[in-house]
Amino acid sequence: MTVDTSTPAGTSTAPATDVLSVQNVSAAYGPYRALFDVSFRVPEGGVVALVGSNGAGKSTIARTVTGLVTATSGRVVFAGQDVTQLPAFKIARLGMAHVVEGRGVFSTLTVEENLTLAFRQRAGRAKLKENLERAYTAFPILGERRRQVGGTLSGGQQRLLSLAKVLVVPSRVLVADELSLGLAPVVVDQVYEGLREINGNGTALVVVEQQVHRVLELATWAVVLNHGRVAYEGEPSGASREMEALMSRREEALATGAEEAEKEAERGAEKSGNPERVAGHVAGGPQTPGA
């Protein structure tokens, strides 16, 4: 994969500063609360892994950061600017890229139109041709199918297309949500290779994953979520231990039937919302398998 090697705009600041910081953020889908007081930071050029079990709130964080979901309290600071209340398109224009979970391409637009839409906004009209060429060189399969509409691509090709949208024109932060879900292991390898490469060029990454091992190899920092709260934050090596501990605790709770008690306690603590129900509804509501 060849990627633009020019430095993304605004990386002149010292590498130690945070390009993105999430401060005490809570978020909800309508009446269902999904995040409780979550904080973490992404240093310039760093790779943060967000891991946790199904419905822990990983995707919600990704969406809150990029503005698809607006936080109900707390702050999101991106590139030195408070973006908490900004609409997603304004955050995107500041240099945020987000590869959404599942299908992230327009099924009625052709491959070329999908790319054009992204590049015209990110890199300007003048560089459109050049960027398209670069995308087709990096992903030859997309070049072959440039006139085909997105909906007729296979799942893997759609994923490649949504990656091409963000890999060719580098951004300051890339949020990648469940990139490996439903992909064959061999394709997942390619995807991670691409992530490593743009990170090498200065883009900070926030990687949301359920497959813990792969992402923890790449990450410089890890955040483990449980029931919409941060259960662990620190070195990636500690994260897998924490995940295992969470698993076994749940298993024990199930065995002893203590989970009910735990939930009852939680419900008492959070009067306005029941995180358990939130997780179920949002992440995997009847319509879509999610997060």
Partner: peptide, 10 residues
């Protein structure tokens, strides 16, 4: 009602 159930239960 299934509306109240999570993905696993669904």
């Amino acid at each position: 009602s299934v509306n109240a159930l999570g993905l696993g239960n669904c």
